[in-house]
Design a protein around this nucleic acid. Structure first.
Lengths: 180, 180
DNA sequence: CCGCTCATGTAACTGGTTACATGATTTA
DNA sequence: TAAATCATGTAACCAGTTACATGAGCGG
């Protein structure tokens, strides 16, 4: 257990997943990320396995060999130090990177919309509209599915729904302004 | 000019900035990122200078020595190949990473809210509310400032405003549900 | 002239991606 | 039993961060 570093987003998230899943393998955590509604979480093996070793070496999670399978496998649990680190990562206090304007690759691109010829511009907007609408519907389904289960998870999923709904409204606003 | 890779978000953004600023130094680009409303763009020198060299080596931007100063300095412009690469990066087509649910570190944390003791939970929410509100106001100001200038820039800034407004609404929703 | 900020970098480090390897388990 | 998928990794690479260096111009 070396000196406490500040956790990256992925580290904090993985620590949180191990906390919420109880004793679980690295693959369970990985799957959660792979199946996440947001494409942001890649859940690549090359990220997860070394990361969890790292957390274990720092004493934030502990592993014991998994008896059930024939193959080498370990189940992880969060230690007391791990819970403290998770809480510190969660905040409060909430740093600017957490509460400030979040990144949005679609917004980033929009700043340079005029670099596209008019025809592509229109296609950019119509395709955005269509695809964002689709992803919004998917987010809505996910939230509805988890409605009865865990309230906090449902509320977190609602965040994605509201974010996508706002994005869709925004695209409509843009289209109106640029149609003239 | 080696074979075309797909650009990273930062590369695409920098290419776009050089395109929109006309001939400009690396520092001008860097400043734009440093002064950006979103904490996502760090604009660290160690990222920008090598990145722009990279783009130059690929023939996407071209530099000529800047005559005005005594010190070594170069101004960059986008080449024809650079404009093509910029347009390809902008899309359409828009990949899932661009139109899908964007990352939000606050939402990520919310999934694990129950790992906090009740008192911290309430502080987490009240601090979120307060800080998101502040950042929303700042985003609003930025949009208002650019209102008369460039329409597209204004509309892009509006995206940040709407995203933050949605976040604020979301926090209120959470607070209502958890107060009971 | 001294110190401060501007401006242009560089070097070391590191977290995450991509691609590969491989044994175990299931399915056709 | 052959093929596909599950599950657990590993190795090379790379983009971006942190921290440092350094000269130019400017305000006192």
């Amino acid at each position: 257990m070396t000196a406490a570093r500040t956790l990256t987003e992925l580290e904090g998230c993985v620590l949180g997943l191990v906390w919420s899943r109880g004793p679980c393998t690295a693959y369970v955590v990985r799957k959660d990320l792979l199946l996440s509604a947001s494409p942001h979480w890649s859940g690549s093996a090359g990220a997860i396995y070394p990361l969890m070793e790292r957390l274990a070496r720092q004493g934030l999670i502990r592993s014991r060999p998994d008896a059930t399978g024939r193959r080498a496998s370990r189940k992880y649990v969060v230690t007391a130090a791990g819970l403290a680190a998770l809480r510190a990562w969660l905040g409060p206090p909430l740093p600017p990177g957490v509460v400030g304007i979040p990144p949005d690759p679609l917004r980033t691109r929009l700043y340079f919309l005029e670099a596209l010829p008019p025809r592509s511009r229109r296609r950019f907007l119509s395709e955005s509209e269509r695809k964002v609408r689709t992803h919004l519907a998917r987010a809505q389904e996910q939230a509805d599915r988890g409605r009865g289960e865990n309230l906090v998870t449902f509320l977190a999923d609602r965040g994605a729904v509201l974010a996508m709904a706002a994005r869709l409204e925004w695209i409509h606003e843009i289209t109106r302004h640029l149609a003239k």
